[in-house]
């Protein structure tokens, strides 16, 4: 048991236990499928389950701190942070109830070959930062920077928590599925919108997942909508005109072109949801 499944009691101990012959174990929903991906299955599991701080969510005026082991199920139950709706929706609609009880936010971010993560675009839209720990100590960086370096990050680094700064806007998440539920999204979109006093968009963050191999912010669309009055925005036309920002991936679930085709609709759906929330909160 000690040999092939370890339970380090602290993040420092977990970092020391890592290496090429070990793999981090959080919720298990990605690691346990390594055989199906023809990956090396002889690695020792380094479970983070016995490190208490990784299970915590704390909310205060400065922000929301989410431990890496917090499950989708737990995130879906957060009800006191109105601007975080995109994350709550993404967590509550992804996969299926049993998987949501197991799969963690840290795993969703760190599974680098998993293109269809739901939490990642939501966190991008919320401007999240992540904290990582390695032999060099702890460091924080934006999730956007983390994702850009994800494939080359050291195997002895652990993502320990996520930090979301508090905001005054509202957010929403939309998923494009072939069936109604229970599968990976063909594409997903999270938006965060903040109005100014005149009813125009003061700040917008828009993130897209499942279209490329890694979720990313749609900066060109953010720039195009910023300063625009909410009322006269034809968001799906704007999105349509900027889809060349993506190099979509082909997959067994959907061809590349289809992912792009549904994108403008998903953006419009998420915008409508976030704008509705803004109206209701006004």
């Amino acid at each position: 048991m000690e040999q092939r499944f370890k339970y380090p009691p602290s993040v420092e101990d977990a970092v020391s236990a890592l290496g090429d012959s070990a793999v981090l174990f959080a919720g298990g929903t990605w690691v346990m499928r390594a055989p199906l991906r023809d990956e090396d299955c002889e690695k020792t599991f380094i479970s983070l389950a016995k490190i208490p701080e990784l299970h915590l969510v704390s909310v205060n005026d400065a922000g929301v701190k989410i431990g890496a082991l917090v499950t989708h199920h737990a995130l879906a139950a957060i009800s006191d942070v109105p601007e975080m709706t995109a994350l709550v929706q993404a967590a509550g609609r992804s996969a299926n109830p049993a998987i949501r009880r197991m799969a963690t936010v840290g795993g969703n971010i760190c599974a680098k070959d998993f293109a269809a993560a739901d939490l990642v675009p939501a966190l991008l839209a919320l401007g999240a930062e992540v904290e990582v720990q390695s032999f060099e100590g702890a460091a924080s960086l934006t999730l956007e920077d983390y994702l850009q370096t994800r494939s080359t990050r050291p195997s002895t680094e652990i993502l320990t928590s996520i930090h979301i700064p508090r905001h005054s806007g509202r957010s929403a998440h939309a998923r494009g599925l072939l069936r109604q539920a229970g599968e990976y999204p063909v594409a997903n979109v999270s938006v965060y919108l903040e109005p100014d006093q005149n009813g125009a968009i003061n700040a917008a963050r828009i993130a897209v997942g499942s279209v490329e191999s890694t979720p990313k912010r749609w900066h060109a669309l953010e720039a195009a909508v910023s300063g625009q009055p909410f009322g006269r925005l034809s968001i799906s036309d704007l999105a349509q005109s900027l889809t060349q920002e993506f190099t979509p991936r082909d997959g067994v679930d959907a061809p590349a072109t289809y992912r792009l085709r549904i994108l403008p609709r998903l953006v419009a759906q998420a915008f409508a949801d976030a704008m509705g929330q803004l109206e209701r909160s006004a």
Binding site: M1, R4, F5, F25, G28, T29, M32, R33, L36, F45, S47, A49, A95, N96, P97, A98, I99, R101, M102, G182, E183
Partner: peptide, 26 residues
């Protein structure tokens, strides 16, 4: 064996989970 179908669901401490993705060590 992938967490999609639910045919393997059992309870761990009363909570339904997919046993195909749960290692016994946990």
């Amino acid at each position: 064996g992938e967490g999609f179908c639910g045919a393997c669901i059992i309870y761990v401490d009363g909570e339904p989970k997919t046993s195909c993705l749960l290692p016994v060590g946990a």
